[in-house]
């Protein structure tokens, strides 16, 4: 369970990214975080695995006080939380399986770390993870020869190999075309349901969010303005979250993103 209690986040330059955030996310939920660019969606997600530090309040993940973790504890804590990025963040010059195997690296003894020789067990686990996202046949292909959708699946497999309880996804489909987006979202949904892994996802595509997520969290200017089941989301609520910009956003989410970045 992830608990946000009065969480505040202020950047060093004075920008307030999050304020008064109070949330409870149960194990196994599929949560989509929506809102305008710069509303604090990405910050919210990155606080959970301490990629960002919060500046006020408490953040508790499965009874662990996240802010109290130090150095090695943070790294051990992160092992349980997978993360997926918009730009896939893979080493494109090596094979798919080597990218997946990276998730075992922190557990290796020093000589294996240096030589890059993984155990057979780990290789099998990595292959299984690839099988779960349906790209087992690409295991020994170099990543730069895969399409965007396939690369995001490699990233997903890398996360699965970690055997996480929670998967955080930061705009996972923003660089993909609509068809591949759906395929990747289906993978997320299946992983969420079959393996009872919580998925917390930042997403620009409202219609996709409403279709796949169980629960929607709407953020505006760093505050949670909506929190509830997806089917309860109405046009009025969306207009509230997006500050009246919903028409423009729904029609061209990609362009919107391109302008903001």
């Amino acid at each position: 369970m992830i608990q946000f209690i009065d969480v505040q986040k202020t950047y060093p330059n004075g920008t307030i990214a999050l304020q008064n955030v109070n949330l409870n996310i149960e194990q196994g939920e599929f949560v989509a975080v929506i809102g305008l660019s710069g509303a604090g969606k990405s910050t919210l997600i990155r606080c959970i695995n301490r990629m960002h530090d919060i500046t006020g309040g408490r953040l508790i993940v499965d009874d662990v006080e996240v802010t109290r973790l130090r150095g090695k504890q943070i790294r051990r804590f992160r092992r349980r939380i997978g993360m997926i990025f918009q730009s896939f963040n893979l080493v494109t010059r090596t094979t798919v399986i080597k990218n997946v195997l990276v998730s075992f690296v922190p557990d290796l003894p020093l000589w294996r770390k240096l030589t890059g020789l993984f155990t057979k067990e780990q290789k099998i686990k990595a292959l299984e993870a690839l099988d779960k996202v349906g790209i087992l046949d690409k295991a020994y292909v170099r990543v730069d020869q895969l399409s965007g959708g396939q690369q995001q699946r490699v990233a997903l497999a890398r996360t699965l190999a970690q055997n996480p309880d929670i998967i955080l996804a930061d705009e996972p489909i923003a660089s993909l075309d609509p068809v591949t987006s759906r395929m990747v979202m289906n993978d997320f949904k299946r992983i969420n349901q079959e393996m009872n892994i919580s998925v917390i996802m930042n997403i620009h595509h409202v219609e996709v969010a409403l279709e796949y997520a169980d629960r929607i969290i709407g953020i505006r200017k760093g505050e949670v303005v909506f929190d509830g089941e997806s089917r309860r989301v109405t046009k009025e609520i969306l207009e509230d979250i997006y500050g009246g910009n919903i028409e423009a956003l729904a029609s061209s989410p990609e362009e919107k993103l391109a302008h903001v970045r």
């Binding site: 080493v91 990276v102 690296v105």
Partner: peptide
Amino acid sequence: RVLESMTSIGCTTFEKIRYG
């Protein structure tokens, strides 16, 4: 960018250099 994902996996700086 790959370093960011390795941070999220819980890798140390050395591991990031070796595998990233």
